[in-house]
Design a protein around this nucleic acid. Structure first.
Lengths: 335, 335
DNA sequence: ACCGTTATTGGAACCCGTTCCAGGAGTGAT
DNA sequence: ATCACTCCTGGAACGGGTTCCAATAACGGT
């Protein structure tokens, strides 16, 4: 593999000149530039990214640390990150955080200038004592899907989302409204807890009670959600509508209700959260949050930060939106 | 940030010694090693991955080039890759290939020793004239989900899979069996085409005809699959069973059939391909292929190759398996 | 013709590890 | 005490870029 010195020699110029050509420096005459470019092309020379990185001090690499990367929402965010990063000529290294243990040392070791030029934490909430370190971290960090003072972040108002979903059902005339969510990992920001708070607030504001057994949660698994659904529908006074903390739950609830011969939305309204692609196809009403865009914008924010153009304390609240489809309707025996 | 020279000075030894300690060389006395380790700890020194990479000649990074990373199957494969790579201390940079254009220069530029130590092509078929270059590529390459002579690869027998799915339906007593697949991108190995071939072969072997209009394909989108489903069911002589080239299709077909009031499997049997997580929850019969394992084993294979332990011409066929669930059954009006 | 500038240029120093080579220290044998 | 070893160790060279500094060339002005 040819080196910059080989090119310089062949072109009869100094290495500095070749380097300047490579970096589009204006301090090269057009004649020299053309000549050097011709030689580069002729030798099929490509500068070593490694050597460049060592000189510069950091590589053209961003780190994306993702919680539960297998979840459809994380995936969409990741897609946004990848698109923007690759557009800007950066590689993305991907770290999948599964347990709290992973989280501790690995991540801080990853977010060093010799590993990457910037980091994105997707749906990951650093521990309290990590926050300060991250805020002063040598490479900039952006949190996607979470809000943390002192660290640039993008987030949504989960409580508002829970409220919007609930109010939609209330406005349709529902009175007996349940909530189904999941236990949340301590790694994350626990959005479900906030959505639940929004649900409770909306219920309270409407003067509605939340009966015993109307709030379900468990591990994020289909079978568990299915069981929760059946428990709800087995109640003496079953709900006419369910707020699910995610579209994936809404899907399962719908399916479970139909398996019992109930019709959705006639016998049971279900609303989800996220607006995954599949929600559209299944006609699930939901609270849409910008998934792809959160990743893309987070990446842009990070790129800005890396050029010192933005304050690292920037916080951006992304908009959410009620999407009404065919899984929610006026209750059958409406008052 | 302290450098190796700082550590050497502080410890009163040479840089060579510190380097040897860092790399667990046996050429260091225990006393010296302990002392140096203590100093390293005290200074909280971490060697620069960048400088190390430049010295060594390559970074501790693997490249995963994935086609349509948003597909659930690609994601599972990626998970396998990530787990094995991170276990071995490698970072993974992720490249999402969307169109053929992306594929051309970017990938070859990525698979250079200054970018990564090895590459995994997931469901990506290099163009003919690229194959030779890849085979002699400076960094080793493994193809996950595809077979190509001259390049190490992991694959399944798609034709056999299509045949197994079809034979399962035939054995249940179905005679009118349709096939639903999708148009495939030229980037990939076109597994659907092979599965279709297996379907045709099984039908021919059983002496069954494939009536006009029984083979459907279109873009990989839910609405299209739904339309195909309706077209099939609108035929004068509609099928009693459908072989879908992927679980995602099987899901939509099931849903479409139910929307028309048909029962699955009583009125229509549906079998998928892949065995995604969701297939289990929806009770979809399918041909299981090892997704996570293909990624994991591909990564292991790559790590071996990087150490020269394996021939780069190794080819591994992964096993597939018929999984019978509740979406396939004996046809209602069986002969 | 002479001087001050500005436009280019070459090349050494630097980034920070790894590795090889030339010793030096220590040990056992004679 | 001397020699032959083995075991450790220090430090220079090296990897391949970037960048800064000194130097040359070219140009306009008087």
């Amino acid at each position: 593999m040819p080196t910059i010195a080989d090119v310089a020699q062949r072109a009869g110029v100094g290495v500095g000149t070749v380097s300047r050509v490579l970096n589009d420096s204006p301090l090269v005459s057009d004649r020299t530039r053309d000549h050097v470019l011709a030689v580069i092309d002729e030798m099929n020379y490509r500068p070593s990214a490694l050597a460049r990185a060592l000189s510069i001090g950091t590589a053209g690499v961003l780190a994306a640390v993702v919680q539960r990367m297998t979840s459809p929402s994380a995936l969409q965010r990741l897609r946004g990150i990848l698109d923007v990063a690759s557009e800007a000529g950066f590689d993305v290294i991907l770290h999948n955080v599964k347990s709290v243990d992973d989280h501790k040392d690995q991540v801080r070791d990853l977010l060093r200038p010799d590993r990457c030029a910037g980091g994105l934490l997707v749906s990951i909430k650093p521990e309290d004592r990590e926050v300060e370190k991250l805020a002063g971290n040598e490479v900039p960090v952006v949190i996607v899907d979470g809000r943390l003072p002192g660290i640039a972040s993008l987030y949504i108002d989960d409580e508002l989302g829970g409220r919007m979903a609930t109010e939609h059902l209330i406005e349709l005339g529902h009175r007996r409204i349940a909530f189904v969510g999941e236990w949340e990992d301590v790694i994350g920001f626990r959005p479900t807890a906030k959505r639940l708070a929004g649900y409770r607030a909306a219920m309270a504001d409407a003067g509605l009670e939340v009966p015993e057994g109307y709030v379900k949660s468990g591990p994020h698994e289909h079978v568990v959600t299915l069981a929760s659904t059946n428990e709800l529908l087995d109640l003496d006074d079953p709900p006419t509508a369910v707020v699910a903390s995610a579209d994936s739950h809404a899907m399962v609830i719908t399916q479970g209700a139909r398996a019992r011969g109930l019709r959705v939305p006639d016998d049971l309204s279900v609303i989800g959260f996220d607006d995954l692609e599949i929600a559209e196809h299944l006609g699930i009403s939901t609270i849409r949050q910008p998934l792809y865009d959160s990743g893309a914008q987070g990446a842009r924010m990070l790129l800005d930060l890396m050029q010192g153009e933005t304050r690292s304390t920037d916080h951006v609240e992304m908009p959410i939106e009620l999407i009404v489809r065919s899984s929610t309707a006026v209750p059958r025996h409406s008052s």
